[in-house]
Design a protein around this nucleic acid. Sequence first.
DNA 1: GTCTATATCGAGATAGAC
DNA 2: GTCTATCTCGATATAGAC
Lengths: 229, 229
Amino acid sequence: MPGKQAAAAEETANAGRIRRGQLLHIVESAERAFAEAGFAGTTMTRLAEAAGLPKANLHYYFGTKEKLYRAVLENILTLWLDDMAPIVPERAPAEALGAYIRAKMGHSRARPHASKVFASEILHGAPHLRGFLTHELRRRVAEKTRVIEHWIARGRMAKVDPVHLFFAIWAMTQTYADFDVQMRAVLGCAALGTAEYEAGEQTVLRLVLHGCGLTTEDINEGEQGPCRS
Amino acid sequence: MPGKQAAAAEETANAGRIRRGQLLHIVESAERAFAEAGFAGTTMTRLAEAAGLPKANLHYYFGTKEKLYRAVLENILTLWLDDMAPIVPERAPAEALGAYIRAKMGHSRARPHASKVFASEILHGAPHLRGFLTHELRRRVAEKTRVIEHWIARGRMAKVDPVHLFFAIWAMTQTYADFDVQMRAVLGCAALGTAEYEAGEQTVLRLVLHGCGLTTEDINEGEQGPCRS
DNA sequence: GTCTATATCGAGATAGAC
DNA sequence: GTCTATCTCGATATAGAC
């Protein structure tokens, strides 16, 4: 009975699609909830409210609160590594670092909750991220460090410790997501808008590029896209 | 009976002294415990263990877990504001900013737990610090912003947004306490030692000073202490 | 002032009807 | 697959002996 089989297959596919949709919906709403209160401070009741579902459904899909939290973290990690893609030896240092900083600032603005969940995890000893930090991240940093050293050796930028340069860039860009409450209090504004992000991006670009012996004009050197200084 | 009165007074003084000692001891051990797991993630049992006392004693002294946490926070806040003291119009910009950065880096190294408790509080919306952020901190930043603007107006440093400059300095220096786990994983070392802090301080100094149109040599301009570049 | 024993509540997790 | 009702445990907080 091919008709019945097809219907069954379609049903299975639909079920799978619905299931994946539910999983993604739960993970996304959980990201926001965990960002507000951290792992320990977020209750299953709160997570269920955030997803608009009964608690039992979350347990049905993820088993435990910890497994749901890990799913949220994994959903975030690729962002961090992918942002480093522009840093390749062929590109000009100012252009590559500028693109990296803009990508990081963009993520702070677009995915502030993701940044906060990550920050909270690291802050409290990263018990769920040991492997990621000591393997994937470490490898990626080592790889990009070689690119920076290559630029320095060729005299294309000043001699700066590449690893600490990354620490500085991470800190300055992620702080726009993680510490937004502090910024809003100091600036006296209800929310960080385009103006604040623009000013922040300019400041970070300035410190990093000048610190590396480059100028903000170097940014568009060899770039074909529209000028955006 | 002056003798008895004196003894009673001494006893009271001793009791007061012991009490203050106990309070301080509990607050200091609680700082470490809260830094490890955040407010929600730290149990009274854990706090009691950290202080080496029964749970009931903590409740006797502080009433509730939240009041103990607030005591820890208040113990920390003055640090943040006091570090800004070097920023006065009379000093040379490079020297003042350099002193500020070294003070902040010094605190990250000497009081990493304090930094983490503060970071965790801000990260989760600063429910216990609203007043501090919107009053004390905001006022202090406004005051120091005027100093920076004064330097810029006199052509003593480049035109940089003062508030975002502070955000950048806070982020870059505090990350050495808050994200030490990530740094240790990337660097492959068991603990951040003098070498790492030196390299970090040099990097932060470099980015900030060059970003402000100053050079690292400007730092000792007009300074009478020993050269420490 | 100090500590043991305990009350009370809310958390994560699950059983079982639908 | 979904949800209500419930179990169990560990949390904060306190009562009351010493």
